[in-house]
Design a protein around this nucleic acid. Structure first.
Lengths: 146, 146
DNA sequence: TGCTTATTTTGATTAGTTCAAAACAAGCTA
DNA sequence: TAGCTTGTTTTGAACTAATCAAAATAAGCA
């Protein structure tokens, strides 16, 4: 999925039966440019341009948009709160640097429904798999050995 | 790793330079029998037998024991807070039922260092991979179709 | 333009966790 | 075994993320 314009986001919202509001379009636009942001990050990033937006509204918006499948919630250990990204339906995963906390996407290249088959699923019907790789990024590796 | 006795846990604690206290041994014993418990779960389960144990101490203990590698912290979405289990160093993963929140272990059978090779690791030195499968367990499946 | 209703705002509240200082006890030493 | 030292627990407060409810507002339709 490529970056969408505000007008395209508006259409997406309307298509899901949601009203188009400035806050929602702004949050979607911000998360396109800053994936893996927390609700507070979004709030902080949008506050200068939209002083009327409150932190609670930001929580509200990301919650609603996640419920409607426009956003995907990413739960990472050691990252304070929940993070969000535009839902691309590409089943990708994440790598996180344990030093600088930087998060990057990891495309899932193992077939069509990758990682969806646990060795023993306890009889459960598996819906999805979330994979989180933890490691040390090149930059932190360099400063550690310095 | 099999279940350890209190004396064996005491040795493990001492081997790590930690003092042996009743609270620590009790927490380790409880988590052996009740894996994937939250700090509150442990506190609630131990409170009757150890009235002097406080919730804050429980947080303290699981935090310290996790830092020393005796416990492993499990972060699951939609599960309130962090959960803990005795660290077995077997690199297993978890399946969670999205309906009843039940958590089961998934042994990792894909070779020696399974899931440790992302398709694109962004140059990071990968330390570990956490895999969380989400699905619906047989019991909930049955009650859903009823 | 005006109405209806979804959304945002505002303020308060909860749950989970962390922090700091004082009380306590494990383990060493004599 | 008694006493000391220091790691651990307790106690109480504080902090963050997130949720809830009622009032104010605005989107989209007639």
């Amino acid at each position: 999925m490529q970056h969408l314009t505000e007008a395209e986001w508006s259409d997406r919202l309307r298509a899901d039966g949601l009203r188009v509001t400035g806050g929602r379009v702004a949050v979607l636009g911000y998360l396109q440019q800053h994936p893996h942001s927390s609700a507070s990050d979004v709030y902080a990033g949008l506050a200068p341009a939209r002083p009327s937006l409150s932190l609670q509204s930001t929580h509200n918006i990301v919650h609603d948009l996640t419920a409607h499948g426009l956003l995907r919630r990413v739960d990472l250990p050691d990252s304070g709160g929940a993070r969000y990204e535009v839902h691309q339906h590409d089943n990708h995963h994440h790598v996180q640097c344990v030093v600088c906390q930087r998060i990057e996407d990891v495309p899932c290249t193992v077939g069509a429904a990758p990682c969806l088959t646990p060795s023993d699923g306890h009889g459960m019907r598996i819906i999805e798999a979330a994979v989180i790789f933890r490691g040390v990024c090149p930059g932190c590796e360099a400063s550690l050995s310095a």
